[in-house]
């Protein structure tokens, strides 16, 4: 068994105000979830950026690979009909 010398990495998500989503804002190294929470508070909310924090172990996140970009995302580029831009908005609906 190898001894862990480095603290694990945690991804930090901050909700800036009620009603908004938590947004990824960075990461911290910490020994466990509680310490990660405190470090996230100290590093990412010191200028009143947030009212709620999530911390997630970085290794719990499954990420898409950069080299898959062509097959995953580019096929959507020429499908403009997937955007709801072809509808006429009834006058009574006002601004959307």
């Amino acid at each position: 068994m190898t001894e862990e010398k480095e603290w694990p990495l945690w991804e930090v998500f901050i909700r800036s105000k009620a009603g908004l989503d938590h947004k990824h804002c960075g990461s911290v190294h910490a020994s466990d979830a509680e310490m990660a929470m405190e470090s996230a508070r100290d590093v990412y909310t010191r200028r009143s950026e947030g009212i709620s924090i999530w911390v997630v172990p970085s290794n719990a996140i499954t990420a898409s690979k950069p080299e898959d970009k062509e097959s995953l995302f580019e096929p959507a580029d020429d499908k403009i009909y997937r955007h709801p831009t072809f509808y006429d908005i009834p006058q009574g609906a006002g601004k959307m």
Partner: peptide
């Protein structure tokens, strides 16, 4: 010891 602890102590 780490940047996180530095921020914590300075805060």
């Amino acid at each position: 010891p780490t940047i996180e602890m530095e921020m914590a102590l300075m805060n």
